[in-house]
Every structure is written in structure tokens, then in C-alpha cells.
Design a protein around this nucleic acid. Sequence first.
DNA 1: GCCAACGTTGGC
DNA 2: GCCAACGTTGGC
Length: 152
Amino acid sequence: MNYWLMKSEPSEFGIDDLQNMPDQTEHWDGVRNYQARNMMRDQMKTGDLVFFYHSNCKEPGIVGIMEVVKEGYPDFTAFDPDDNHFDPKSDPKNPRWFMVDIKFVRKLKRTITLKELKEKTELSDLALVRRGNRLSIMPVSAEQWDFILALE
DNA sequence: GCCAACGTTGGC
DNA sequence: GCCAACGTTGGC
């Protein structure tokens, strides 16, 4: 089993929005970055656990845990001209963008802030805290996962 | 294939 | 709102 971290702006889609979805499940659409696409298409497997990270907000940090419930499939929002994430270069016969479905597991008791994560030398290899990192989906090692959860 | 211009991300 | 960092685009 693998561990991941996925970013979302809470003003767009936050942990509460996920919890309130039917079946507490939603497709993670709109990712338009090849590295992140490859992870969703090729590597994320059913049962993998994912940290939900709130970005671009007052208190950026990890707020909850979710689970992959459907593996990579084409991101249909890329085909819809009326969608914000429309990409005319993604052909339904040869989709450029992929997504997975994720399900709410639980909220953390508190937000583990970016500031706090940056202070931990144990997490210096975590992509999230590396300078200039903008990846919206990233792998988390089992050691990093356990270490972060122990901070809760 | 290089690289300047541009757009986006996301912390602060 | 600012701006550094980075990815993408497109002219050459």
C-alpha cells in the first residue's frame, strides 16, 4: 500500500466538502500537471491512503485523511467546453488527463500546519516542504506518514 | 532545441 | 495583494 498527499484550496474544495458529498466520495478532477497525472494514472491504487492538504488559505496544512476508492480513469471535465478545466487538447479517444476517486476517512483532530511540517528534520525529504514545490499530488513514505500522524 | 515571455501556484 | 518559483508556450 502507498501513501500520498493531495492539495486543494478549501475555498474551492475542502475537507468539509468531501465529507458532505454523497458517499463522502468525489472524483479528483482538474489536475493539469503531468507529474501529478502520471501518479493518478499509474501509481495510485485502491486502498491507498491520502493526506488532504489545504493550500492557499489562512492556515495551510494537513487537515484529514482520505482513501483511494477508484483508480485512474480519464478526467471528463477536460472534454467539457463549459468546464473551468476544459482542455481542447484532451481527446476522449486519447485522454490527456486522468483522475482518481477518493473517499473521506476522517478529519485530523487538528490541522498539522505547513509551518510545523517545515520545522521537522525528519520530513526534509517530503516534497511539500522543499523550496518552490508546486506539485499538487505527491508520494509520502510510510515513515513520513507515521511521523506526521504521530504529531496529531 | 533554445530561451524569453507568459501564466499559475501558493506562501506570506 | 505581492512576488518567487516553476511549467508551458511559441518564435526563431
